[in-house]
């Protein structure tokens, strides 16, 4: 194991994050505050409660998930795409590192960044709503799993992308809609009949539901199914990455 290489990649990626610390942290704080003002205060005042939880508090897990998923994907995909774009990928390919170490460095850093942002949003939320977390350990576990799995997905997108447009394509066309329709701002039970069934095909529903369970002890689907869903998603990403590793797809000819 080339531990120095993993550290080097991880540190370089984190440095990029801290170099733009203002954008990295201020923007999620501002956007979260906006969500609270718009959804929590304006719309929330008419909804009052969902499943016995004030609407303002109800949307907190969904808001964290929304940011964490998009940030983990964006950071990891950019992290590995940028060396491809600048050509510095030659160095990764000619260095005594294996693919696992490369993934560990890039995905680890992207997941850490997403975690940071998730925690910042959680702290911001405490200023707006009365919040207490029912299962803190499960909450942390879900957060870590989500950061890691979406960073893995981002890594795959970064390897696949041939240009900056493609880099934005999947997050924009797939991830954002799935997250918005995955119950970030509402309970699936609030949907009319057929849409509840359709929503069950959205993998993000299980993640948000599980995360919400960790906060409030109530969920759209049982926590066991949520755990199985995130495990399935993570192993799916790992399988694809394993295949990329074996074939050198899009990186090593």
């Amino acid at each position: 194991m080339n531990i120095y290489a993993v550290q080097t990649i991880y540190r370089a990626e984190m440095k990029r994050f801290f170099r733009t610390i203002m954008q990295s942290l201020i923007s999620p704080v501002i956007s979260t505050s906006l969500y609270f003002i718009v959804f929590g205060a304006a719309i929330g005042s008419r909804i009052d409660q969902v499943e016995g939880i004030s609407y303002g508090a109800f949307i907190v897990p969904g808001l964290i998930m929304l940011s964490v998923m998009t940030q983990a994907t964006a950071n990891a995909s950019f992290g590995i795409y940028f060396p491809k774009f600048t050509g510095t990928i030659y160095e990764l390919l000619s260095a005594p590192v294996n693919f696992f170490e490369i993934v560990l460095g890039y995905v680890g850093a992207a997941a850490t960044k997403a975690m940071f942002i998730g925690v910042i949003i959680l702290i911001t939320a405490f200023f707006f709503v009365d919040l207490h977390i029912a299962h803190p350990m499960a909450m942390i576990a879900f957060l870590v799993m989500t950061c890691l799995s979406f960073a893995l997905l981002g890594f795959i997108i970064g390897i696949w992308a041939g240009n900056f447009e493609q880099l934005q394509l999947i997050p924009l066309l797939v991830i954002t809609p799935l997250v918005f329709l995955g119950g970030s701002f509402y309970s699936i039970s609030m949907l009319p009949g057929i849409w509840q069934t359709i929503a069950m095909f959205n993998p993000v529903v299980y993640l948000i539901s599980g995360f919400r369970w960790a906060f409030f002890g109530t969920a759209d689907v049982s926590i066991g199914i949520s755990l199985a869903a995130i495990a399935l998603f993570t192993s799916g990403c790992l399988a694809v990455i394993g295949w990329i590793f074996r074939t050198g797809w899009r990186i090593r000819q």
Binding site: Y4, A5, T8, I9, A12, K15, L92, A95, P96, V97
Partner: peptide, 12 residues
């Protein structure tokens, strides 16, 4: 930093 990055990548 760029040169130091290379060194780390090569496990030194």
């Amino acid at each position: 930093n760029s040169v130091s990055f290379s060194r780390g990548l090569f496990g030194k």
